[in-house]
């Protein structure tokens, strides 16, 4: 699976990226994690907030940057 964090480089975006990396490691999820600051892509997806979490190219809702919520988002998004 491919997980991307799209953000404008703000503190919350960085925090989300870190949490995603941790979750992938702790849960032994087979995924490639990338960070991108291509904000134009956020808008192209029809969204207007940042950061955005993409699982296999699809945006998924993240309630917060806590490990529990990020884990839920990644696993829920993969289904």
């Amino acid at each position: 699976m491919k997980i991307s964090v799209l953000g404008s480089g703000c503190p919350t975006c960085m925090r989300l990226h870190e949490t995603v990396k941790n979750v992938v490691k702790n849960e032994a999820i087979d995924a490639e994690v990338e960070y991108s600051d291509d904000v134009a892509r956020i808008v192209e997806l029809g969204l207007m907030h940042s950061p955005v979490l993409l699982v296999d190219g699809k945006p998924v809702d993240v309630k917060s940057t806590s490990e529990k919520d990020v884990k839920e988002a990644i696993l829920g998004g993969a289904r």
Binding site: C10, P11, V39, I42, L47, M48, S50
Partner: peptide, 15 residues
Amino acid sequence: FCSCSAVPLFIGFVE
């Protein structure tokens, strides 16, 4: 609003 969303909001509005 957090500064995180300023840029996508701006582009989205202009677009």
